[in-house]
Each structure stands twice: as C-alpha cells, then as structure tokens.
Simulated scan of single mutants.
Amino acid sequence: MMTYTVYGAAGSGSVPVEAALTLIGAPYAVIEAATFEGDAEREKVAPVNPMRQVPVLITPDGETLTESAAILIWLAEQHPEAALAPEPGDPRRAQFLRWMTFVPASIYSMYWVRDVPSRLVGDDPKAQAEMDRRTQDRISACWAMMEEQLQPGRFLLGDEMTVLDLYVAVVSRWRPLRPRFHQVAPRMGQVVRRVDALPELADFWPKRFAFEGDYADPAPKP
C-alpha cells in the first residue's frame, strides 16, 4: 500500500488529518513544519503550498491537497469503508458540509492573525492584546452559535462519528481553550470528550496533541 505524506506539526491543523488517517488505517509519514514558529518553518512548506501553511497532504498518486476541511472530506470519500462521512443522499450530508465549511471559515481563520498578531495590528502591545481579546470572543461566539444549531447524539451529527468530530475535537483545544468551549458549547463538549477518549486514538493523541498543561480538559461535572 502506498503512503500518504502530511506536512504538519503537533498541535496544529494537521492533527485531525493525521487522526483521520490513523482511523482509516492508511500508512502516512509526517514532515514536521511548525509554521506558527517563524519564517524558517514556513519555508519548509513553500514548495508544496505557496501559502506556507499546514496541513498539506500529498496523496499516493502525487497530488497535492491543501485546506484542512477539503483534505478531511476527500479522505473520507476515498475511504468509504472507514465510514467517516455521510455519503451523498444521506440525510446528514447537508449539515455535514455546512459545518465542515463553517469551522474553517468562521473559527480556524481567526488563527492566521492570532499566530502572528503583527500581520494585522503591527507591533503595538495594546493593539495586540485587544486583538487577542476580540478574536477569543469571536471564536467563542461561533462555537455557541454552532451549539445552538446542532442536536448532537453520541457525536455531532448523530450516533456515528465523522471527520467533523475529529475537526472540532482539535480546534476546540486551541485558545480560548477547552474551559471556555465547554462553557459556551456544553453539549458539543460532551462529544469532543468522547472523541478524546476513543481507544483507536489512545496512542495517537499523546504524540500529536498531548492534552496537558494549558491544553488540559477540565474534569466534567459529576
């Protein structure tokens, strides 16, 4: 079986892609490129993505895919045996596509400026602090809106897990971190804890996004 190649980094947007590949059982290799750490890391990605962003997926056929949501949807479609996305005609399909688009458009996009605040507000510490506060508020508001619109079962779209669950489980770990996520999206919070605890990913999470320190999930209320 031919191998996928993922350009990514621990704790980054490549993690849901790597998690999906792990659940699929497809062999893959990671080229570590922590693009949020500076220009040298971003240049590692430049040959495969002019935007100098991760994740990037190189397929076994040599095709290059960028954009985390597109990669996740494509992987699920290429490996239907893994049942990680509702197929066309499934009544869950429309909402699956809706939220797989919403997460990167409304939430993930905030991190382009949060990773390097000077991109939009220059080097003024006060402006950067205000940007930090406002983007955290915006991210929280988006999670809250998603919470209001969903009726989760065991997972976000019902009783079967999809790549949307992997996506939200990772992005909800980023700032403003899980405590605030659970505050604004408690039902979704139950789902992401379920994803965190998947036995199939028990070895994966500690290696690629260790849920400890700032990223530790608060204990659920009894």
Rank of each mutant, 00 (worst) to 15 (best):
G213N: 09
I71A: 02
S172Q: 04
S14W: 00
E160Y: 13
R173C: 05
R42S: 10
R93H: 03
A129P: 04
S68R: 11
D115S: 13
F181A: 08
E147W: 02
E43G: 12
G25I: 11
P117D: 10
E32K: 05
A202T: 04
L156A: 01
P125R: 06
E77S: 15
P16C: 05
A69S: 13
A82T: 06
V192L: 08
Q151G: 11
D61V: 07
Q190K: 15
R187M: 08
Q151E: 14
E160C: 09
P176W: 15
A216H: 05
M188G: 04
M146C: 15
I139N: 03
A197I: 02
R180H: 15
W99G: 07
W205N: 01
N49H: 12
R42C: 07
T162Y: 03
R134H: 13
Q128N: 08
W174I: 02
R178C: 11
V103H: 00
F209Y: 00
A197D: 04
E212N: 10
M131A: 10
V6C: 02
R114S: 10
D165I: 03
R194Y: 03
E41W: 06
G122R: 12
Q183M: 09
R180I: 12
L97W: 02
R92H: 10
P16R: 00
M2N: 10
K207E: 06
V6W: 00
G213S: 08
S118C: 09
P27R: 01
D214I: 14
A169D: 03
I139A: 05
V54Q: 10
Q128M: 13
E147T: 13
D132A: 15
P16E: 04
Q136Y: 09
L157T: 03
P220T: 09
